[in-house]
Design a protein around this nucleic acid. Structure first.
Lengths: 222, 222
DNA sequence: ACACCGATATTGACACTGTCAATATTTGGA
DNA sequence: TCCAAATATTGACAGTGTCAATATCGGTGT
C-alpha cells in the first residue's frame, strides 16, 4: 500500500515490539499503511487509532502529532482512496476508444475499486467519519468529480461549450448514482440474492454489464 | 415513531429520572423509540446502548434482556426502517396509474424516506452493524425486495409468467442501483455541488426527476 | 563544539463505550 | 401460597479517543 520505504526501520525484529528508534522517521505514512491494513482485515469497525499505533510499533498517542484525531486519520485515508480511485478511472478512460465506451469503462473501474477495497470504499462515503474541509480530502474528491464531469461532457457535447448545464448535471448525477448505487449495494452484500440468478463465472461483472447496458436501451415497451 | 403507548409510564415526572416502576412494561419499544430519536438527533455515531437506556430512564444494562447486544438493537431498528420504507413504497405504488409511473413513484418514495430519515437509512445499509440473520430484519428486507421485484415485473411483462428472468434481474438491479445511489449520495452530502446548479425551490426533487427521466430517453446522440 | 528550541514520541489519566456476572425485584402460574 | 422465570440493577472489566505533562531527538545559531 505504501509507496515509500520508511526512512528508518520501524522495528528491526518484527511487528509490535518497541525496539525501534525514538523517532520513527516516516510515521505518518506507516500509520496510514497500518490503518489501511486494519481496514482491509477487520473492516471499518476495526480501524482504531490505538490499533494502528500498535501495528506500527508506536505508542498509542503517537498518531496525534500527525493527524490530530481519528477523524483526521480517516480523512487522510479517504483522500488516498479518492486519489487512487480517480487514477484508476482515468486509466480506464484513457484506454477507451469512444466517448461512450469511456463512460462504461469509468463505471467498471469505479465498481472494481469498491470490490477490491470494500472497507476503504465504505469509509470514503461515510461523511460523518470524515472532515470534509481537510485540504487533501477536498481536492481528491474534487478531482474525481471533475474527471467524471469531463467524461460526461465529452460524451454529450464533443467539446462544444454551449452544452446545457442542466442536462450535464443530470447526466453526471444519473451516471454517478447508477454506478455508486451498484457498488454500494454490492459491497454491502445486498445484491447476493440477485447475483444467484446470474450465470457465468463472474456474475458480478456480468450483472454490471447488464446494468450499464440498460442505460442505452429503451425500457421494455408498454 | 412508536405505534403503541407504553403499558406503564416510563417515568411520571420527566425524562431521565429513575422514579418509574421496576418493570417498565414496554421497554423494548421504548428503547427502540429512544434509539431512533438518538439516531435522528446525533446520527449513527450517537446511537449507543447506554444513551438509549438513559433516555428511557432505565439502567445501562437493561437493553440486554431485549436485544442481547448493540447489534441486536440496531438490527431491530433497521428492520423497522425497512418495514416503513416498504410501506411508503407500496403506498406510492398504489397511487400510481400506469406501471411505468409506479416505478418512478417507488423511486421517489425511496429517496423521500432516505431524506426524511437519514440516520436510519444509513444504519439500514451498514451491514457490519447488523445481524442479517435476525428474523425480523431478514423478512423486512425480503418484503421490500419482493415489492420492488413485483413493480419491475409488472412494468416489463404485464403479468405474463414467461418473462426472461435474466432481464428481470437486470432491471431490478438497475432500478435499485440508480435510486439507491442517488439517495446515498444525497444523504451523504455528495450531491451538494451538483444541486447548486439546479434552479427551483426544491432542487433535490427536480434533480431526481431529471435522473428518473434519464432512464426513459436515449442518451445524447453520437 | 556547544547550547538550545521545536518537532516528535511516550506516559498516564479521564470519561465513555459494550459486555458480562452477580444480584435484586416483580410477575404469573402451579 | 410459594416458587420459577422474566425483567431490571449494580458493579466490574477491557477497550476506545483525547488530553496534559513529560521525555527524546534533530537541526540551527552562536
Amino acid at each position: 500500500m505504501s509507496t515509500t520505504e520508511p526512512a528508518a526501520p520501524a522495528s528491526p525484529t518484527g511487528d509490535g515490539e518497541r525496539g525501534g528508534p525514538y523517532h520513527h522517521g516516516n510515521l505518518k505514512q506507516a500509520l496510514l499503511d497500518a490503518a489501511e491494513a486494519l481496514l482491509r482485515r477487520e473492516g471499518v469497525g476495526g480501524l482504531t487509532l490505538r490499533a494502528a499505533a500498535a501495528e506500527t510499533g508506536v505508542s498509542h498517542a503517537a498518531p496525534k502529532n500527525h493527524f490530530g484525531d481519528l477523524c483526521g486519520l480517516q480523512s487522510e485515508l479517504a483522500a488516498s482512496g479518492f486519489r487512487r480511485l480517480a487514477g484508476q478511472m482515468r486509466a480506464a478512460l484513457d484506454d477507451a476508444a469512444t466517448a461512450d465506451d469511456a463512460m462504461d469503462a469509468i463505471g467498471r473501474a469505479y465498481v472494481a475499486f469498491a470490490v477490491a477495497n470494500p472497507g476503504l470504499f465504505n469509509l470514503m462515503y461515510r461523511s460523518e467519519m470524515l472532515d470534509a474541509d481537510r485540504p487533501a480530502l477536498k481536492s481528491a474528491v474534487s478531482d474525481m468529480a471533475m474527471l467524471l464531469r469531463g467524461a460526461v461532457v465529452a460524451r454529450a457535447g464533443g467539446g462544444a461549450s454551449g452544452v446545457n448545464t442542466a442536462a450535464i448535471v443530470a447526466d453526471i448525477t444519473a451516471a454517478w448514482s447508477l454506478v455508486h448505487g451498484f457498488a454500494t449495494l454490492l459491497v454491502d452484500g445486498r445484491l447476493a440474492p440477485l447475483l444467484a440468478h446470474v450465470k457465468g463465472e463472474n456474475p458480478e461483472s456480468s450483472l454490471l454489464d447488464l446494468v450499464l447496458a440498460s442505460r442505452k436501451t429503451r425500457p421494455p415497451a408498454r
